[in-house]
Write a protein that binds this DNA or RNA. Structure first.
Length: 571
RNA sequence: GGUCCUGUGGUGCAGCUUGGAGUGCACGCCGCCCUGUCAAGGCGGAGGUCGCGAGUUCAAAUCUCGUCAGGACCGCCA
């Protein structure tokens, strides 16, 4: 049907008779006997010269046959890769007519999200969406090649699985053959990949669809795709090596530069320096320890176990309203308040000056490395709160746009095993309950559980959590001990995860794994703030697909067959 | 569950603060003209329940309340 793609014609093709197919991108008529028609396919646009184009309209699908020729002197278009040539003496076949598009098919579009999604098939024609989806395919392909080159085997795991009421909310599918019983859609293939290790697969990977029924965000959809991997007879260093190689390969396949070696940082260091477990290391403004500098202060607001601050360069002119908003934000995040100091030239200005000693007035700016016209923000309180609050303020005040600052990968290691205590004093697992504690900390499990580190690690890219992994518990005795720690009784553990514990009694190799989100990786590589831009058919924030109308009601006969009845919505 | 922003011809906006006739801009659409344009140009034209519903008022796109939709965020996401 066609001999060439629109975007590939060049002066070297001159003289050839060609056929191209695509959509009418624009039409410029110059009377009855001359018109220019730009035809677009995913490779680009080429100008076709026709006698008349009165019957053509935007987005009509056409096949154009004609002769490639250099454009006349002075009429080349340097903005177009095909701008030195045109297709002349054209015959135009209309393959399909089209209504006027609901929004312009331009590279950049500012149309309403609902409108774009309702007409996604038009939206996808836009060069930006074409680039994003093709970038995604390039990245996926590079990931597969890298994993296979490292000896990993792709294994598919089931989509209809048993619900394990742990972590995120499950999507649930009613069973017809067992009315009243339900499948769940997998939040991840976690348990299956561990079973594959017991099954001797040794190195497993999968570009796995994961589903979680939680509220949507710019970086979260109901369904998302992960590189899911697991390896036997391997430790943390092995996993980090494999995943590092694959992520670097994927980023390079996308045409971006990245170093071979990915820096590492412990969770503790990330908290101390950045107030986050996923630090954005593209900019400074690190958290500075001030506890000693104000030890013994007479100012009550700074009498706290931990005092830290950040230096906001050049923001001494910040208005009172903005500072008040930051203060509200800090309080909402748990801080008692927000202390601010301004370097008005060389002079320190602050509402709290009268409460500070002379030593403190010089020690605070010095510790923070303050320079003229800087704004200094100080928070006091319990250490985790101080870190969290300042970490948020740092992002708010300094974070660069998504497409700036290059690609900065970072491994964050030595996460705590538990992230705190629940209402009944039981530890909450920071990762998941199959995470192996750090061997050096095992003997503190009973006495100081919150100080126990785990062999869990996250991969962070420009402040986005790309993914996480861990060394898994492969011994039933340790797994039972962790379960009981989490308040999961042996009977409950048996009923929920019994199949895994059974498997571990049949010869489980030590194993470790990882999973990271493809949607987020591709979005960052595409310079997009929102993962919807790299998903062909995403859902809106309220979980609706405006194109297909999902979710919708089902036929009453379907419900009856499933033994279900829909209750009226509570009002 | 909560906070904030947005909703005005097909599209993107302005108008809203300080209520006074659906007013305006750009694109698109329809018709005519035009032989070198490329977001072509010129002339003319059509197209509106100001998301929806209440309330206040002599009078509401504009003020108030509710509601729906889209977006950002908090909660949530082991």
């Amino acid at each position: 049907m066609r001999t060439h793609m629109c975007g590939e014609l060049r002066p070297t093709d001159a003289g050839q008779t060609v056929s191209v197919c695509g959509w009418v991108a624009s039409r410029r008529e110059h009377g009855q006997n001359l018109a220019f028609v730009d035809v677009r396919d995913h490779t680009g646009i080429v100008q076709c010269v026709v006698d008349g184009a009165n019957e053509l309209r935007s987005e009509f699908v056409v096949r154009v046959t004609g002769t490639v020729r250099a454009r006349p002197e002075g009429t080349a278009n340097p903005n177009l890769p095909t701008g030195d040539v045109e297709v002349g003496d054209c015959t135009v076949e209309i393959l399909s007519q089209a209504e006027p598009p609901p929004f312009p098919v331009a590279d950049r579009v500012d149309a309403d999200e609902n409108l774009r999604l309702r007409h996604r098939y038009v939206d996808l024609r836009r060069p930006a969406m074409q680039r994003n989806l093709r970038l995604r395919a390039t990245v996926s392909s590079a990931i597969r090649r890298s994993m296979e080159a490292q000896g990993f085997v792709e294994v598919e795991t089931p989509t209809l699985i048993a619900s394990t009421p742990e972590g995120a909310r499950d999507f649930v599918v009613p069973s017809r053959l067992q009315p009243g019983s339900f499948y769940a859609l997998p939040q991840s293939p976690q348990l299956f990949k561990q079973l594959l290790m017991v099954g001797g697969i040794d190195r497993y990977y999968q570009l796995a669809r994961c589903l979680r029924d939680e509220d949507l965000r710019a970086d979260r959809q109901f369904e998302f795709t992960q590189l899911d991997a697991e390896m036997s007879f391997a430790d943390q260093a092995d996993v980090i090596g494999v995943i590092s190689a694959t992520v670097v390969a994927a980023i390079r396949a996308a045409g971006r530069e990245v170093a071979d070696e990915i820096p590492r940082m412990t969770w503790r260091e990330a908290q101390d320096r950045f107030g986050s477990d996923k630090p954005d290391v593209r900019f400074g403004m690190e958290l500075v320890e001030l506890t000693d500098a104000v030890a013994g202060t007479g100012f009550r607001a700074l009498q706290a176990p931990c005092v830290k601050g950040i230096r906001v360069p050049g923001e001494a002119g910040m208005g009172r309203a903005r500072i008040d908003r930051l203060t509200d934000q800090a309080k909402a995040a748990g801080a008692g308040g927000l202390v601010w100091l301004k370097m008005e030239g060389e002079t320190l200005e602050s509402p709290i000056l009268k409460f500070l000693s002379a030593e403190e007035k010089s020690a605070l700016p010095k510790a923070l490395g303050a320079e003229p016209d800087d704004l200094l923000l100080v928070v006091a309180g319990e250490r985790p709160t101080v870190d969290r609050v300042l970490g948020q303020l740092r992002l708010e005040l300094g974070r660069p746009p998504v497409n700036e600052g290059g690609i900065n990968l970072l491994w964050v290691t030595d996460f705590p095993l538990f992230e705190g205590l629940d209402g009944e004093g039981r530890p909450i697992p920071a990762h998941h309950p199959f995470t192996m504690p750090h061997p050096d900390d095992l003997d503190r499990l009973d006495a100081e559980p919150l100080s126990v580190r785990s062999q869990a690690y996250d991969l962070v890219l420009n402040g986005w959590e790309l993914g996480s992994g861990s060394v898994r518990i492969h011994r039933p005795d340790i797994q039972q001990r962790i379960f009981s720690f989490l308040g999961i009784e042996p009977e409950e553990a048996q009923s929920r995860f019994g199949f895994l514990l059974d498997a571990f009694r049949h010869g489980a190799p030590p194993h470790a794994g990882f999973a990271f989100g493809i949607d987020r990786l591709v979005a960052l590589l595409a310079g997009e703030e929102n993962i919807r831009e790299v998903i062909a058919f995403p859902k809106t924030q309220s979980g609706v697909d405006p194109l297909t109308g999902a979710p919708g009601p089902v036929d009453p006969r379907q419900l009856a067959e499933l033994g279900l009845r829909v209750l009226p919505r509570p009002t």
